[in-house]
């Protein structure tokens, strides 16, 4: 029954294994509202791997790898399922990109990106544990310090 709920879209993307409670943030991050597609958010599904997980289904739109990897910052465990004609066409794990453009806010209050019209830019220093390096102020951001713009 659960499998049916997850895959029951004809065409599109199912983002699975989102850490519990992060589903809403992903909808915001991908700016899904502006796409005018049907989006379903499932919250707190039981999961063997995560205990609880969120699921986001987007009908009629396949996430490209670039979009998928944006998710990795807040949901490193997420899997991307591309659905075609009710069937799983492709399944992939999200990966944090080497360069993160304009998603993350710099935690350094004296960083120019928090004061001027500058798009933030970070380099991935390490994925596990997550550590980013600000292109501008050159500070490191650990997972706990990461907030999204």
């Amino acid at each position: 029954m659960r499998e049916f709920r997850v895959y029951a879209i004809k065409q599109g993307t199912v983002i699975d294994h989102i850490p519990d409670g992060k589903g809403v943030a992903i909808i915001d991050l991908l700016n899904l509202k502006s796409w005018k597609k049907i989006v379903t958010l499932g919250m707190s599904f039981p999961s063997k791997r995560l205990g609880r997980k969120d699921i986001v289904k987007i009908e009629g739109k396949e996430l490209n790898p670039n979009e998928a990897n944006k998710i990795a910052i807040i949901a490193p465990t997420a899997t991307i399922n591309i659905i075609r004609n009710f069937k799983l066409a492709r399944k992939s794990q999200v990966e944090i990109p080497e360069v993160i453009d304009g998603i993350v806010k710099c935690a350094n209050p004296s960083c120019i990106t928090n004061h001027d019209h500058a798009r933030t830019k970070f380099y991935l220093e390490s994925a596990k544990p997550l550590l980013l390096h600000c292109h501008y102020c050159e500070r490191y951001l650990s997972e706990a310090e990461i907030t999204l713009l």
Binding site: S110, C111, A118, C134, H135, Y136, C137
Partner: peptide
Amino acid sequence: RHPLEGSARL
């Protein structure tokens, strides 16, 4: 010279 960090890079 600027008091904010990353200003020169920008």
